[in-house]
Structures are given as structure tokens and as C-alpha cells.
Simulated assay, not measured.
Amino acid sequence: MLFKDFAQILYNNCAGTDSQYQYFLLLFDSIMRDPSTKEELAQEKNDKYNPFDSLQQDTIERLFRGGNLNVKKLRVVYQKRDTNKFAKYIQQFDEDTQLNIEKDIKNHLPQFNSEEGDIGYACADLFVAILHDQIDDEPIIKDTKDKINNADELSKSFYYDPRDNKIHIDNTIIELPPQLLPPEGIADEEGFYIAQLLNAYAEALGSSKITIDDVPSLKRKYRDNFEEQRINYYSAIRIDRILRESFANPDIEMKTWKSETYDYISDTLRDEYDNGFKRLVEVLKTVIHCKTTSVVDQCERLIGPKERKGVCHLLEIDWTDDYE
């Protein structure tokens, strides 16, 4: 399927009042992960993170209608692809819109979404495949059928090399997204675990309530803990992203990682503590020794203390519960 056909289908169903120029940029913004390094954040501030932002409107309109996309720019997008982000973009639309998208794509690609059952991720995978075809690279993960099905398929040569930020499986190389940095402001999806942290600090300090605005005035140990937990959370989110991009059953692997982590920390979690902050500290001390049967735990060097601590926040633990 050609990019112009994919873009036109989504434009017809999702663009609303956006022009082709605006929607072209939105599509690439939606498939690219959020900026996470200082350099990328600076690029975003200067409207240079999306490599197509620098083009004139008439040029982009020609590209939308089928002009040749610059391979160098496409490589930048491909290297920073985020299927989870694009899937969420599609999932925000109502069911009728998603069904219309599926119907229109199937007119070009009859096998589209035949077994996936999730139009968001199916569109994301298709967009990535279109990008890959344009840049004609050696495949990292060609499509859903080529993703690793489960840990049993892995050889003993399965490891993460932090020097090149890639997973190596025999002759296959999987390029990974870089470490995610917490955004300056609190993202909506951080709401629950942030609230539990603040409750834990309040209980330790004998305060009725602590808000985000109070954090800068807290004692250093609480300020440092807050910043560290945000880093830990985004480290775990990165692992979820890796699973979605590299494995055919990401939800199963993620569920295994989370549930077995909970099993490991549950006794420590239910111990008696003077306050929720002490419970948090003891659980995080315990979890760094955890090993699960999830595929991410079987990849040498991929999971470290930050990721193990971060998954606790994905479990939505109430640190101030007395667990009686």
C-alpha cells in the first residue's frame, strides 16, 4: 500500500477541518515517539523534531498527493517510530470511524487487520511497514508475522547491548527506543501513581494532603524520591513500548512481567509499616532482586533496577493501605 493511499484514507475519516498540509504533519507527529533527550526537546521547541516541519506548505501538499518522500527524513521518522502512540491516536475516534478506516484500507489491502482485532495497532503496524518499504532498509521487524511469538523461540544468543541500544538475537537486530525522560509537566497517564506517592509522603509527614505544587518545598529525600520514581515509571513504560514493537504477544508478556513482579513483592507489601513512604522504600528495595519468566527478563542486560522499580507503579499500588 502506498503512503498517499494510507494518508488519504485517514484524512477522509479523521482530519476534520484540517488541511492536507496540517494533516500530513499530524500523521508524522503521531507516529514519532515524544522527544526524550535534551537535544530532541530543543528540536521540538524550534519546530525541528518532525523532519517534515521545515518544508513549505505547497511542497507538503504535493507529497500528500503522491510526491516522492525524502528518504533521509523518513529514516529519522522510522528510527523514532512509536506504534503505541499512533495506536492511541486512532483509538480516540469512535467505533464507526474506526470501522470505516478498516473498510477503506481493506479495499486496497484485503488482508488488513484480519486477525488483529485492534484497528489502532493494525494501522500503526501498517504505517511502519509503509515507511520501511520507502526507505528500503534491512528489516528490523518486518511485520506482525515476523515478530517473536514467545520466549521459546529465542536462542541462547539473546541480549541487549547498551552501546548500540539494540537487542541481538542471533543474526536479527532489533533497534530500541532510547531511554524516556519524564516530561516537565505531569502527563495524564501518570495521575494514579503520582497521587499514591503524594499520599505516602503526606502520611510520613503527618500531613492531611500534599499536592504537586508542594513537592519543591518538601525535604530533600522526598523531592529526590519523587524525581527518581518518575524516571523509574518511564523506564518501565519504555519496556512496554519495546514489547509492543518486537513481540507478537506483548500484552501476554507484559501481564507476566507485572503479575510475577507482584507475586515477588506481595509479602513485603503487606508487612506492617509506620507509614506509606516506608512501605514504598522497602518494596523498592525488594523488587530490584526480582526475576520473572517474562521475555524481557530473559534478555540479558535489558532490565535493571529502574525498570524493576518502575513496574511497581504500573501495578497501581496504594502505598498507604494497611493491607489488613
Rank of each mutant, 00 (worst) to 15 (best):
K4L: 04
Q8F: 06
I9F: 02
A15P: 05
G16C: 02
G16N: 01
G16I: 01
L25W: 05
L26I: 13
L27P: 00
I31D: 10
R33Y: 08
L41D: 09
L41H: 11
D47W: 12
D47R: 15
K48Q: 15
D53F: 07
L55P: 00
Q57G: 03
D58G: 01
I60R: 04
R65G: 14
N68V: 13
V71K: 15
V76N: 08
V76L: 13
D96E: 09
I101R: 01
K103V: 02
D104N: 14
D104C: 11
L109I: 11
N113K: 12
E115P: 00
I119L: 10
I119V: 15
G120V: 11
D125S: 14
E138W: 09
P139T: 01
P139C: 01
T144K: 09
A151D: 07
L154I: 14
Y160P: 02
K166V: 08
K166W: 03
I167Y: 02
D170S: 14
L176S: 05
D188R: 06
E190M: 09
F192A: 08
I194D: 07
I194A: 11
A200I: 02
Y201C: 01
Y201D: 01
A202F: 11
G206M: 06
S207E: 14
S207T: 07
S207R: 14
D213S: 15
K219G: 03
R220H: 09
Y222V: 04
R223N: 02
D224I: 06
F226H: 02
R230E: 09
I231Y: 12
I231K: 15
D240Q: 14
R241V: 03
I242H: 00
I242M: 03
F247V: 02
A248C: 07
E253A: 10
Y262L: 13
D263C: 10
D267M: 13
T268S: 14
L269N: 03
R270G: 09
E272A: 01
D274A: 13
K278C: 10
L280A: 11
L280Y: 06
L280F: 13
E282H: 10
L284V: 00
K285R: 07
H289T: 01
C290R: 03
K291P: 03
K291A: 10
V295G: 01
Q298M: 07
C299Y: 00
I303S: 05
P305E: 09
L314F: 09
Y323R: 10
